[in-house]
């Protein structure tokens, strides 16, 4: 278990708390000024800087601190400053694909972390036919059109979205709905913010009875709902997935080992993480590792 320290200029840390929680899962997360700085000789295993200004606290360059450092950047100037300081990697928080951020053409582009993302690897898509079978098995009506209550418990929300034929979805639940491949109706404001198109990944409609009717129509039009669900999942994988950027940050911080040749090859072939092939490869790799250690 490594010690991951968060360092920030006052007022800038809260924005990156969610990312730090994901990156530091399984490790110990501490405050730089509260835990590391006061104790002589205390050294963290890795550092996450919430802003470029906070890097000065750590020293004049990365060599001075001697541990991997990742830094959040908001523009190209930040990126240049962070790189010249010597950070291992930079990251930026993004709202969706349409939001202009630091250039991605640059080789040393920051890792893009969605503000409201989901771990698509942990959530397999549930196709519409499977949903229908699950509804039948659970004695639920078919079709099942829902307006998912954002104040309900997480289990109720995810179950509703996983089993619905179509759903009216509030902003907080859009990433989960897209990842599960739920045909969804969202408001124009949410669609604008997240870069979603009407009739493409979601149906866009104002709040109230109109959105309910649109969801009911969507549930009846199965071919349209099925293709919308496929595009929604693709959108979630491309723009809202948290697993990949978090893994990149963890690797940059030395919290997880570099991928093996087999893992790299499977990733090249776009093998789904939940596939049997991936699981077998992981099991085989574990065996090889055990043999190497004995």
């Amino acid at each position: 278990m490594a010690v991951v320290a968060l360092v920030a200029t006052p007022g800038r840390a809260a924005e990156v708390a969610d990312v730090v929680a994901l990156v530091g899962r399984g490790h110990r997360v501490v405050s730089w000024h509260h835990h590391v700085r006061p104790g002589r000789g205390r050294r963290p295993g890795a550092v996450v800087a919430a802003d470029v200004e906070a890097l000065e606290v750590l020293g004049s360059s990365a060599a001075e601190i001697g541990v991997p450092v990742v830094c959040r950047v908001i523009d190209q100037l930040d990126e240049t400053r962070a790189r010249s300081w010597g950070v291992t990697a930079t990251f930026c928080l993004v709202d969706g694909p349409g939001v202009p951020g630091p250039t991605t053409k640059d080789v040393a582009a920051p890792i893009r972390v969605p503000r409201r993302g989901v771990d698509t690897r942990a959530l397999a898509v549930i196709p519409l036919l499977t949903r229908s079978q699950l509804r039948s098995a659970h004695g639920l009506p078919d079709p099942l059109v829902l307006a998912v209550d954002p104040s309900a418990s997480p289990a109720d929300r995810s179950t509703g979205l996983a089993l619905a034929s179509a759903a009216v979805v509030s902003e907080d639940l859009v990433p989960l709905a897209l990842a599960l491949g739920t045909p969804s109706v969202v408001t124009p404001e949410v669609a604008d913010r997240m870069g979603l198109e009407d009739g493409n990944q979601v149906a866009v409609e104002g709040l109230g009875i109109d959105s309910d009717r649109r969801a009911a129509r969507l549930a009846r039009d199965q071919p349209a709902a099925a293709s919308m669900a496929r595009r929604a999942r693709r959108f979630a994988e491309d723009h809202l997935d948290l697993a990949r950027p978090v893994e990149q940050l963890q690797r940059a911080l030395g919290l997880i080992p570099a991928p093996s040749v087999i893992e790299r090859r499977l990733a090249e072939l776009s093998t789904p993480p939940s596939s049997r092939l991936n699981r077998r490869a992981a099991e085989a790799m574990t065996l090889f590792t055990l043999e190497a250690h004995t």
Binding site: G24, R25, R28
Partner: peptide, 15 residues
């Protein structure tokens, strides 16, 4: 991890 991250962020913000 969430609790530790929130606490660390709070301490960095309020120092």
């Amino acid at each position: 991890a969430e609790q530790q991250a929130v606490l660390a962020a709070f301490r960095e913000d309020r120092r």
